[in-house]
Simulated assay, not measured.
Amino acid sequence: MRNENTSIDKGMMNKIFRRSFMFGASWNYERMQNLCFLYTLMPVLKKVYKNDKEEMSIAMKRHLEFYNTHYTFNPFIMGVTMALEESEGNAADRSISGLKTGLMGPLAGLGDSMMGLTLIPIIFSIGASYSKDGSLFGVFLALILFNLINITIKYVLLKLGYTKGAEYLSKPETKANLDKITNTAVALGVMLVGGLVPQWVGVKLALSYTQGDLVIQLQDMIDGIIPGILPLLLTLGMYKLIKQGKNPVLLILGLIILSIPLVALGILG
């Protein structure tokens, strides 16, 4: 069982914040930031579950699920997760997973637009104006400005996610609303992840039919009927094999090996 006498103090919060700077150290192609998330959260899990290995195992397995969002906005999700782990523990297993899934997509988009497409170009444009004559001052200025803003946002979001998450969870009506929020978050997350399939998975047929001056590309015909169906079928097939216990690394190697002769034979482009 979860330890009821837990409290995430300022020291614990700062420890989680420091660990968040290593968030990209264990990125992987199978579940992306899951190892990073678990590593960052481990001090909280150890404090919540103490020496209960069974409960700890359940919590760790939960946070090894697929996870990927923007590095700057991740601390908000981390803070909300900390509040749920502290107050509910493994009883909120589905809620924690659902909220993570639902929040990571929108916050990833927000982070990309605010940081990657807005803040970084503005700051480094300012830096470039000071370095147009070859001075390194502009480079250091841009790096200092960016990190000051980025680090501040991350720390504020971590505290906001934890305090507001804890505040929300303490309300009497939370239990009634949590399932609705979780279901909505799961549905949103599934749609967002599904929308990424044709962008992240590339399957293009090179087969064509030629009759005189007429050339019909099979890939164009398929895209005209059901766009993105081949990446979707490949993803669903891989998902089914993984669910059956197949090794993801071996599946990836198998795809690479299979793709080489298919490209050589002109079947794949």
Rank of each mutant, 00 (worst) to 15 (best):
L251V: 02
T152C: 15
P75H: 02
D93T: 08
L117K: 05
A176I: 06
A185E: 02
A128F: 12
P75L: 08
V215S: 14
H70P: 00
T210V: 12
N51K: 15
L103I: 01
G266L: 09
D112M: 08
A83Q: 09
L145I: 15
N5H: 14
S125N: 15
K10N: 09
G116L: 08
S259K: 02
M1E: 15
F17I: 03
M56Y: 01
I58R: 03
I229R: 05
M191V: 14
E85W: 00
Y67D: 02
I8D: 02
L234D: 01
M60C: 11
S26E: 09
T101H: 06
I144V: 15
L188A: 04
A206Q: 04
E54W: 05
A91S: 09
L141V: 14
G116W: 09
Y39G: 03
T72A: 03
G202N: 11
R94M: 04
G224H: 05
S208E: 13
V197T: 15
L253I: 10
P198V: 07
S87Y: 14
K50L: 10
G105I: 13
R94L: 07
A92Q: 01
Y162F: 09
W200F: 15
A128Q: 13
L64S: 11
I216P: 03
L188C: 08
E85A: 04
M13F: 11
S87G: 04
S131W: 05
M13T: 15
S170V: 08
T152K: 15
T163Q: 15
K243V: 04
L232Y: 02
Y49E: 00
K171D: 11
Q199A: 11
N183R: 14
S170D: 11
G212C: 10
L110V: 14
E4Q: 09
N183T: 12
S170H: 10
M42P: 01
L136D: 12
V80H: 05
G228D: 13
A108L: 12
G194R: 10
G102M: 04
I16W: 02
L265K: 07
E55D: 06
N150Y: 13
T6D: 05
N177W: 09
F76C: 10
D52H: 12
I149E: 07
K154N: 07
N68P: 03
